[in-house]
């Protein structure tokens, strides 16, 4: 059974009188350990799909199984738990809490997982070391560069040891060299066995991932196995 399986998934928004189908009959399956890139023009529904995959939103219709759980029928609390334990999400705009330092930002998912302080600290420090920021533990996000902030966000996504990491244009706000190092980090994580799905605009990046999923007008037009 695939790790992620979408069957006839649609997401429709109602804007005034009009109904917009951001996703329209999407079928997709991703196996554990895959490294996939979603590409496509702006407005094709990439972010909408990522939000569904990341359990931040639910489909209007269709079925979505994630690691054996039917996310399309899950309650709000169940979705929160999926996000907390099974999924790590990396955003284009980092989404760190500006008032918290690096350590506190990385600890946050473990607080909602209910871990004790000592374990939280130990695991957070390990995750921060993993992304190479051990010397910036006490800094706040505003004292870091864009690349460093994205590393903190990745550490935060990793810290509860999820099976899947989703990243929506993680290099979109970074210069190309910094973007490269972030992608290298994702590559390493994939080699270590984590399933990674990322959205990118960059053809070069997409060319290097083992699988490319191409979207247009809310549909997957290529890359579906």
């Amino acid at each position: 059974m695939p790790l992620i399986e979408l069957t006839e998934v649609a997401k429709r928004y109602r804007v005034g009188e009009q109904e917009i189908a951001a996703l329209d009959g999407v079928n997709l399956s991703i196996e554990a350990g895959e490294y996939a890139a979603i590409i496509g023009p702006s407005g094709s529904g990439k972010s909408t799909l990522m939000h569904l995959l990341g359990c931040l939103d639910t489909p209007t219709s269709g079925r979505m199984m994630i690691d054996g759980v039917d996310a399309s029928r899950a309650s709000g609390n169940q979705l929160s738990e999926l996000r907390n334990r099974k999924i790590g999400f990396v955003f284009q705009s980092f989404n760190l809490l500006p008032k918290f330092n690096v350590l506190q930002n990385v600890e946050l998912p473990m607080i909602y997982a209910g871990l004790r302080a000592a374990e939280r600290r130990q695991r957070a420090l390990a995750a921060i070391e993993r992304v190479g920021l051990s010397n910036r533990v006490k800094n706040t996000p505003l004292q870091l560069s864009g690349g460093q902030m994205q590393r903190v966000a990745i550490a935060r996504a990793l810290v509860n040891d999820p099976r899947i990491i989703f990243a929506d244009e993680p290099t979109g706000n970074l210069d190309s060299t910094t973007g490269e190092s972030i992608l290298a980090l994702f590559h390493e994580l994939n080699v270590q066995g984590r399933t990674i799905v990322l959205v990118t605009h960059d053809k070069d990046i997409a060319a290097r991932t083992p699988r490319r999923i191409e979207m247009r007008d809310g549909k997957i037009v290529a890359g579906n196995l």
Partner: peptide
């Protein structure tokens, strides 16, 4: 609001 969104995204329940 944004902070609340971030907290929800990393696993905070509505009741948290």
């Amino acid at each position: 609001i944004r902070e609340i969104g971030v907290r929800r995204a990393i696993g905070a329940k509505a009741r948290d």
